[in-house]
Simulated scan of single mutants.
Amino acid sequence: SGFTAITTAIGPVLGGWLIEHASWRWAFFINVPLGAAVIAISLWRIPESRGGAARRIDWLGALTATIGLGGLVTGFIESASLGWHNLLVLGSLAVGLIELAVFFLIESKQKSPMLPLALFSSSAFRGANLLTLFLYAALGIFFFLFPLNLIQVQGYSATSAGAAALPFILLMFVLSRWSGGLVSHYGPRLPLIIGPLIAAAGFALIALPSVGSSYWKTFFPALSVLGLGMAVTVAPLTTVVMNSVGQDRVGVASGINNAVARVAGVLAIAVLGVVMVAAFSSRLNQQIEKTSLPGNALHEIHTNEIKLAGMSIPAGLDPSTNASIKTLLSQAFVYGFRVIMFACAVLSVSSAAMAWLMIGDNRS
């Protein structure tokens, strides 16, 4: 967990620097040599291991899961610009739901399923994954919108925006060993209740800063609280996942939990991204109606609302009007960002509730 955190810290800083000084394409291309190095090290140093019986890859399950999740994500994302009545949106959502239903049907009958449904007979495993779903959904949408807030509204450079989250990451790294010992002293249940509640407080604090707020007085303490909450949560969560299944299923259980975390982030960006655009548009429309902008400028602003505060100001306006519109865009973004941060706090409290209801306090 600690090494994962430190590499996560380097990623945004390096990515921001590459975007600012080279090109956004380098932020993606750099993963190619890193991926090649991982493959080479894995083949060279990691010993092979297999289960007791030969098993086939669940290609059909993988295909239906990919199509299902892709359909849902496409439908939610495109709804922000095309509307809910668009055939592409409705078709994508329908395909996604049908394919996911087929996926679970396949997994229930597959001899070597990608997602062994029998694992979910364990209350602790169900609770750990529901906790992961809610908490990592909150983190996913946060780390998607937070850099936009810093760059589009607060005026940070790409490098500074990447470095802004370092307190969160460093706290997770420094406290990872300590948090792992919490399970032996208090059992997993208490840390998995307290950790998400602290994270919820962090999200609530992140919602407070307005335009032009000082980083050290606002975002820094909020990110520190959020990082503390996640540090308390991550190691006990991993322990619960590993201990809730048999030794021969530990790898599968770990993979499922990681997949749940990734899926949670993707779905949160798709679903809560729509909420963000809706909240931004609502507040912007309320404020912009009080101005005397020409019709073509209003139309251009409404057309580009999906770009949030990063939209270009309509051409042909005087400097004072440009400044007023920029202020309205920033205020509308902050309003939408606050709505999402409070939603993240609710998700975090929900994850604590899952731990309270479904995870025992056995100490290991």
Rank of each mutant, 00 (worst) to 15 (best):
P188Q: 08
L60F: 10
A345K: 11
M230H: 12
A279H: 05
A36R: 13
Y156K: 01
S123V: 11
L237W: 02
S214I: 08
W178M: 14
A309R: 10
S244C: 07
Y156F: 14
G180V: 04
T159G: 01
A27P: 14
G16P: 01
G227D: 00
V339M: 12
S108H: 11
L228W: 08
A279Q: 00
L237N: 01
W216G: 02
L63M: 13
F337T: 06
I151C: 10
A158D: 02
G155K: 15
A279P: 05
N304A: 13
S23R: 08
T132N: 10
Y186C: 01
Q152Y: 15
E107G: 01
L329F: 05
T159S: 06
I198Q: 03
S176R: 08
G68M: 07
P116W: 00
F134N: 04
P294M: 06
K326D: 04
I359S: 04
F280K: 04
S160G: 00
I325P: 00
S350I: 06
L115H: 00
V38I: 14
G180W: 07
I39Q: 12
G11W: 02
I151E: 13
W17Y: 12
L170Y: 13
G212E: 08
I46R: 11
V275D: 03
L190D: 02
A207H: 02
A118P: 05
L205N: 09
F104D: 03
I10S: 13
F142P: 02
P12Q: 00
D58W: 01
S108E: 11
G83F: 13
A231K: 04
R45W: 14
G187Y: 03
A204G: 07
A94K: 14
A343I: 09
L347V: 08
L182G: 06
L284D: 00
V232R: 09
A53G: 02
T132S: 03
A207W: 03
A128S: 06
A323R: 01
V277R: 04
L293A: 03
F104N: 05
A37N: 11
S157P: 02
F337L: 08
V32Q: 13
A355V: 01
V32H: 14
G180Y: 10
L131R: 12
V274C: 05
A128D: 03
L105N: 08
S351C: 01
M341A: 01
L87Y: 15
G265S: 12
I288W: 09
